[in-house]
Design a protein around this nucleic acid. Structure first.
Ligand SMILES: [Zn+2]
Ligand SMILES: [Zn+2]
Length: 387
DNA sequence: TGGAACGTAGCC
DNA sequence: GGCTACGTTCCA
């Protein structure tokens, strides 16, 4: 009783089977053989424990560069007056206690306060869309809330080091430890350094070979015993790839592999961007308990917000526009990662299908203390309240 | 955008 | 050290 593949990356091996495989390759025939059995199942998602959660986008450490980001600029021009400053300030805001309650992680904190129970409004999105849309179509005004799905891809450029800032002490250091313990998997480094072997990149953002995923052992491809003998990988000695027919389905979808992103990470990393991109009063607090907060629209409705990062490390924010848009967004001529949020636009814009309810939720505010947030002045109130 | 080529992780 | 094949880059 053997297993397939016989050896190498994913399964216990048998020399005999390897030889058998060679025979198949040589003869280009597909034969049944008792030696070819199913794979030993492996976890679909290898654990990534101990991977530091750090994905600070470029834009964070350099808010002044916002104006160099076309999408963002247009965004603000159309509706982002209130956040023209594009500061990360509201970010922690004046209310440190509240910030803690929101689950913002201090880089090295070990105090109870720094590990508050976080409202578990974030879950792992189950699937990602592949809708493609040019980023430069973003012209419309962002809406009142965000329902954020965060995706991960394996090639995310690391951000530059965060500059020291007396106003943002907590942000001087990347949140090396992801402290959101409700999640078993950990945020992959969207960039930045990692002290963990097999991490994506080193401190200099240099390419570091990453850990390989394993075959699931259960998909049709994995269950196939024999090489087809006719596909490219079968024919090419240099391919180094498994027969197309046997390619694991899970390994086919290497991009947009969804990873969990902790609340702290969202706050410390992406919140400034969200803040600048959702200028109409979206509360970036997960499940804000504000009674005036508008109820979150059902998943799948509303419009989307994109946070994208190009290979050059720059970050861009894409507006809702007129249609769902996800990956990839061209940035400076290159394609990069795209993070998808969904501002609940209150019926403005098309419905977006395919979203799961298991994603990070931002409660949209349209009112604060009963006052509709219709002008920048009032929105500032909201921001100052660290929503 | 998909395929080819290549480096090398992972397993033995 | 050999082998398979994943991840990545390159190129048409
Ligand atoms: Zn084949
Ligand atoms: Zn599989």
């Amino acid at each position: 009783m053997g297993r397939w593949p016989p050896r190498g990356d994913s399964a216990p091996a048998m020399r005999a089977v390897r030889e058998r495989r060679a025979e198949i390759r040589m003869s280009n025939t597909a034969t049944g053989d008792s030696k070819y059995q199913t794979l030993t199942p492996v976890p679909p998602i290898p654990p990534v424990s101990a991977v530091p959660a750090y994905g600070a986008p470029h834009v964070y450490g350099a808010q002044h560069s916002f104006t160099a980001i076309p999408y963002h600029a247009s965004y603000l021009a159309t509706g982002g007056a209130a956040v023209q400053s594009a500061h990360p300030i509201g970010f922690l805001g004046p209310d440190g206690g509240k910030a803690l309650k929101l689950g913002i992680a201090e880089p090295d904190s070990s105090t109870p306060e720094s590990h508050p129970p976080v409202e578990n409004s974030f879950q792992v999105p189950s699937v990602s869309s592949t809708t493609t849309r040019p980023a430069n179509g973003a012209q419309s005004v962002p809406q009142h809330g965000a329902h954020l799905n965060v995706y991960h891809s394996d090639h995310f450029p690391g951000p530059p080091a965060l500059p020291p800032s007396p106003h943002h002490m907590q942000m001087q250091q990347p949140p090396v430890q992801d402290t959101w313990e409700q999640t078993k998997s950990v945020v992959m480094p969207l960039g930045g350094q990692s002290a963990v072997p097999n991490a994506a990149e080193n401190a200099n953002n240099e390419k570091v070979t990453k850990k390989k995923r394993k075959r699931c052992g259960e998909c049709p491809g994995c269950l196939k015993k024999d090489n087809c003998g006719e596909c490219g990988p079968c024919k090419s000695v240099r391919s180094h790839q498994i027969c197309k027919m046997r390619k694991c389905d899970q390994l086919k979808t290497k991009k947009e592999k969804v990873r969990e992103v902790s609340v702290p990470t969202l706050y410390t990393v992406w919140r400034p961007i969200l803040r600048s991109a959702v200028p109409t009063g979206a509360c970036l607090r997960p499940r804000c308990s504000d009674n005036d907060a508008r109820p979150l629209l059902a998943s799948g409705s509303g419009r989307r917000l994109l946070l994208a990062q190009g290979k050059d490390g720059t970050t861009s924010v894409d507006g809702p526009g007129t249609g769902p848009r996800q990956t990839p967004v061209a940035l400076n001529g290159s394609s990069g990662r795209v993070f998808v949020g969904e501002p609940s636009g209150g019926g403005v814009g098309p419905r977006v299908s395919g979203l799961t309810s298991s994603s990070f939720q931002f409660t949209p505010h349209i009112k604060v203390n009963g006052t509709r947030l219709l002008d920048p002045e009032k929105r500032e109130v909201l921001y100052s309240n660290n929503c």
